[in-house]
Nucleic acid binder design. Structure first.
Lengths: 187, 187
DNA sequence: CACCGTTTTCAGAAAATTTTGAAACAAATA
DNA sequence: TATTTGTTTCAAAATTTTCTGAAAACGGTG
């Protein structure tokens, strides 16, 4: 039996490593530093709190890197600090509910990237000149503004959808319900 | 009047530049090379076909960079090549329909990133050992697999939503309808 | 085929991003 | 307070990504 267990352990360890690499790759595709995604993957797949040294060892990264990365993850709200009585070290634990994880990331990216984009885009609308009366060459101005408006109205929609998904009432249990509502075709 | 027009032109030019910079920034937040996003922004906001030299001049980039970036945009399907009779140069024109643009990007990122992720994640499930009978230490194996399964089922949902949005029947006009369906609360 | 205008390629250069590691800091203990 | 353990910071180094530019390839024309 101990043999079977060992083999099982090895296969889990292999699976973990593969997952960490995969998640890291995925992160860097979406503008998240590879190491940050890897640290998150490690904490997620382990499912138990780990301290800085354990993370350093598992991923073979420096203390400084581990420290900053963990802090970032905590700032993002997808990893939490955990303290253990009688242990001076700090431990870190990843959110285990995938839907909650997704919503946290969505909330944060909306706040940091989408909202500022919308605001800046609004300020970008040429000069604010409501002069729709100037003619001739002005065709281009009208078209230019129309393009910005179209973009803004699309972003308003995205904003609305985010709000819907992030609605505080929406518990993790309701994920499927939300999806079902979305998916429902009017046949 | 010529004065007013000049002022208007200047303000549009300023607005364009601001937009290009903004879009470039946004792109790099989401894992798209800044220049690629900028070239796209330029073509989009200009709304008319431009050739390689015009793009090079407008963004102050090298010929090689412009060439590769434009090709990439064409590969992504959000920019199209346009030919003009009597002109040997190639021109490039960006998709003007924002909803169509969004769907094209979604389709492409799904194909290139989400689908492969799902496949690899499936292969990642430890050893494929369906041995749910081994006990003791095995608690961790069960939990490990459960985590991967939860992730996979979330991704299956994402996949389904993408399919829904990308449904060929869904014309650009139906964007709002789709959104409305999503937004509709059961009050 | 030789020429000319245009586009593509890709090795090396440049720039941007990420990581390291050692010093500074903080907090608990003796 | 000095010591010990653990965490954070940040300038410099390493790495990764992106860009350049000159050469090669392309594709009509004469």
């Amino acid at each position: 039996m101990s043999e079977a267990l060992q083999k099982d352990d090895a296969s889990i360890r292999a699976s973990r490593e593969r997952f960490v690499a995969l998640w890291g790759q995925m992160g860097s595709n979406w503008g998240i530093p590879r190491t940050m995604a890897e640290v998150h993957a490690l904490l997620f797949i382990r499912g138990k709190p780990m301290n800085t040294d354990e993370v350093m060892d598992a991923l073979d990264i420096s203390r400084g890197n581990a420290s900053m990365t963990l802090r970032n993850l905590v700032d993002w709200g997808i990893v939490q600090r955990v303290h253990r009585r009688g242990d001076r070290k700090e431990y870190f634990e990843a959110e285990q509910d995938v839907w909650k994880l997704f919503r946290t990331i969505l909330r944060e990216r909306k706040r940091r990237e989408i909202d500022p984009l919308i605001h800046q885009l609004r300020e970008c609308r040429a000069g604010g000149s409501a002069d729709t009366d100037v003619q001739e060459n002005d065709e281009s101005a009208a078209a230019h503004n129309a393009r910005l408006e179209e973009l803004l109205s699309f972003l308003a929609l995205v904003d609305l959808m985010c709000q819907e998904i992030l609605q505080p009432g929406e518990g993790s249990t309701d994920a499927m319900e939300l999806a079902a509502r979305f998916m429902e075709r009017d046949t």
